[in-house]
Design a protein around this nucleic acid. Structure first.
Lengths: 332, 332
DNA sequence: CCTAATTAGTTGACATAGGAGACAAACAGA
DNA sequence: TCTGTTTGTCTCCTATGTCAACTAATTAGG
């Protein structure tokens, strides 16, 4: 009999680890070092043995996640390495943002290149979940089709929702603005998408917007914290001070380098941020040793859907075996 | 040659995974199910094969982390299982809290039983790091000795510091009250402890206090958030409202079930909390759907050191191979 | 042009991990 | 006592990574 992975049926805790767990972890490790480097370089960077990297790379090549991209002529002595690079074009990721008056969509490929970008105004999103979910499902289907035509088969869809989300189950616990409550959105969308069988994830919109800022926005490459709360309405200066107070509480707890202000606040940044920054400086314990700055988002309202698409890609990088385009041929 | 784990030398990212990684993960998985159950029960709970659990259990027995504790007579049909349980008594964990005017210490064994508890008043802790570190080192040495006399060899020491901490390097980035800055506390204490070679960790005091509340305090078994900011001084009612505002910001971001108020605030809980709760109710989006309550700490000032000790235990449970009391005899 | 040195990638033996199934052990019930 | 059932262990199998030896490709130097 063939070797079977440890049974996945674990009631509460972490799944048991088998050899495949190891494989997944190391595949991910190798895939992270995709910056057009040779196998030897990657072995160096990951600490894995050259032979192991070769082996793992073979699987990544088979799954069309990377490709050989030419010879890496270092000019130095010795045999030149064959550079491998991320082969993003064939794998797609779809991110959607649902809000009261619009649906935003970002379709990108594995290397982050934008393929599809839409923003549909729809004032009736708040009129109950049934209609809204159907609408989202239609848009998702259509975008997935467009991605497929562009050569990138969608490997996952992530949906950003303005509310509390149970990420593991894909359930929207509460989204007041949409009048949603305990809505199994991932499940509903999955069944609407039907035979496409694309994994659907759901997450909080602010979290995903933060991810977008972190990966490609003003906070790119910096440990940061994003905040886009847009439920308060007060005079600008006052709001700025409150923002500073809120930021100081977060800064004292997490010591971020930047706090990114997004959503409707971003457009008022010019007037808000000076007050906020003053307040922050006064209230943060570590100031000025640990510099924490308020920064306005530059991604605008597309941030959440952009972040959603990024999250799909992150999940693929975390576990490259989920790409089943070319299932590994059984050796028996 | 024996099998060598992948080289640990990884500049930036995660370490490469070898068979030992797998072993560690599953050892931890089994050790978590220590509630006096049979091997078969544990196999059921973890999803691992019975044979694997037997194998892992053998190593845990060898390391004296668990012990056979009698027959599990279910009264039911079939061969009764041999129950195994956590054998905490031989392994110790030391938690220390450093503050301006005192050092608090908690020594517990692996099963959580308290062995040593001290609280030393020392008003000169704020007079520079040199003296303070020496003092802490002496206390640590003495407590470790007491633990050893009680039969529990310390397997780790965690230190709670009121300030910003770089946990991975064990460096106190900034502790204003102590006048510490970029102090490599873990390294200093390690060298002071000398040949004892006990791993030293450093963490933020509020985080560790939160851990204590979570494991054995008012928030035991509940996803919670702890806050013990004691830097503000205002009129009680006003403070209560500000507390509510701060709590609402956190609640909107993280949706915790409880927010535990600790430190000096806890003693004023009676007057503070009603105002705070009112404010919270008004400002939290999800209220009243997602119930979030303010709760006062009952652990008092020992919370951080208690949490520090818990953290040491958590690390042991996470990776039982760090217990090298009985190194596994090589089979060659 | 040919050889030595050097680095890149691959191959097969070895070590270790966990799963599968068979087996002995230990009980309850008839 | 015999049967059925569950527990724990043993042996074999597969999967994975390391290691050392080997092949491949290139530069340096005569």
């Amino acid at each position: 009999m063939a070797y079977k992975s440890p049974s996945t049926r674990t009631p509460g805790g972490a799944p048991p680890a088998g050899p495949d767990t190891l494989r997944r972890a190391n595949l991910s490790l190798v895939l992270r070092e995709h910056a057009s480097r040779s196998r030897a370089d990657i072995a160096q960077a990951t600490g894995l043995h050259r032979a192991t990297v070769s082996n793992l790379m073979a699987e990544l090549l088979e799954r069309r996640l990377v490709r050989e991209v030419g010879v890496k002529h270092v000019g130095a002595i010795g045999r030149p390495g064959r550079a491998v690079a991320l082969h993003g074009a064939q794998v797609g990721a779809v991110g959607m943002e649902i809000n009261v008056d619009y649906i935003a969509v970002h379709g990108i490929d594995l290397s982050g290149r934008g393929l599809v970008e839409r923003r549909l105004v729809d004032d009736a999103m708040g009129s109950g979940p049934d209609r809204a979910v159907r609408r989202v499902g239609l848009v998702a289907k259509e975008v997935a089709e467009a991605m497929r035509r562009a050569g990138a088969v969608p490997a996952g869809i992530a949906v950003a929702v303005p509310g509390l989300v149970d990420v593991t189950r894909g359930v929207v616990t509460l989204a007041p603005n949409l009048y949603w409550r305990d809505l199994p959105l991932a499940e509903l969308l999955s069944s609407l998408l039907g035979p496409l069988s694309v994994p659907v994830r759901v997450d909080n919109d602010a979290d995903l917007a933060a991810l977008a800022e972190y990966t490609s926005g003003v906070a790119a490459g910096t440990p940061g914290l994003a905040s886009g709360d847009r439920r308060m309405t007060m005079a600008v200066a006052q709001v700025g001070e409150w923002l500073g107070l809120g930021g100081s509480i977060l800064a004292n707890l997490f010591n971020p380098r930047v706090i990114v202000i997004g959503g409707y606040f971003a457009s008022l940044a010019q007037w808000l941020l000076p007050h906020a920054q003053d307040q922050l400086q006064r209230l943060v314990v570590a100031a000025p040793a640990a510099q924490c700055r308020f920064v306005a988002s530059t991604l605008g309202f597309g941030a959440a859907s952009r972040g959603a698409a990024s999250m799909v890609i992150n999940h693929i990088i975390d576990d490259p075996t989920t790409i089943m385009d070319l299932p590994r041929p059984s050796p028996y």
